[in-house]
């Protein structure tokens, strides 16, 4: 009898030639047929066994992948690009001085603006500059639906709303939408949240799929 099939190469058999010896082996060997059935079951549409909580699991595993793999960790200092290294040399002191002055001036301007009367901004308000933090506007509740809106970003062609639990695990998304507002039912957009629980949300501005701005976290209470 020929050698048993490799578990990690079973997928090849579907495309193998009719006279491939592995096909003949499969006909003769119950062990490999059983393994092939298990493989086909795995790569096909697996149904949820009793007790499985797929939606919850997908959410938890998504957060796990984001935490373990998706986060970019800065490279060690030795691998920094040369222009970053240059920032720490004496030659960069004038640049630092200029940058500090700009930050102080900008901060002063912000403080002055913040002390003035804050205008009521609704949809259609002038867009914020690219790269800025998106400003969330007060949500409006209508029955069990909530309308979220925010000031549009100049470069953005779409917006995505991400919902988080209080533990900051992502529990749902809404959009993308080209409008600076979206109406959602929290029971659908954030299905894990129970009545009375707080749901956090953040709006992400996208331009051709790239993130160009985000909002601070907003809070909603599930009604």
């Amino acid at each position: 009898m020929s050698a048993h099939l490799d578990a990690d190469r079973l997928g090849e058999l579907h495309d193998a030639a009719p006279d491939d010896p592995r096909r003949r082996h499969l006909l003769e060997c119950a062990r490999c047929r059983a393994l092939m059935r298990a493989h086909d079951d795995f790569v096909g549409d697996l149904s949820a066994p009793a007790g499985a909580r797929l939606v919850e699991a997908e959410r938890a595993l998504g957060a796990f992948l984001e935490r373990e793999i998706g986060h970019w960790r800065p490279a060690p200092a030795s691998a920094r690009p040369a222009w970053i290294e240059w920032l720490w040399t004496p030659a960069a002191r004038p640049a630092w001085a200029f940058a500090c002055a700009a930050v102080i001036a900008g901060g002063t301007l912000l403080v002055i603006q913040a002390r003035g009367p804050s205008p009521v901004v609704l949809r259609g308000a002038p867009p914020v500059a690219p790269g800025s933090e998106l400003e969330l506007l007060a949500p409006e509740f209508e029955g069990d639906a909530v309308m979220l809106h925010w000031r549009p970003a100049q470069e953005a062609d779409a917006y995505l709303v991400r919902f988080f639990s209080e533990g900051l695990e992502e529990i749902g998304r809404a959009g993308p939408t080209p409008e600076p507002s979206i109406t959602v039912r929290l029971s659908e957009a954030a299905p894990g949240a129970g009545r009375g629980e707080a749901v956090l949300y953040r709006v992400v501005a996208l331009a051709r799929g790239d993130e160009v701005g985000t909002s601070a976290l907003g809070t909603l209470r599930v009604r």
Partner: peptide, 27 residues
Amino acid sequence: GRAAASELLGRHRGRVYLWCHRYVRDH
């Protein structure tokens, strides 16, 4: 590279969970 790996494994996370659940039968 990390984003690609995250996307790739994210696509299959449901089937991996269901498969594991079949064996251990505990969430």
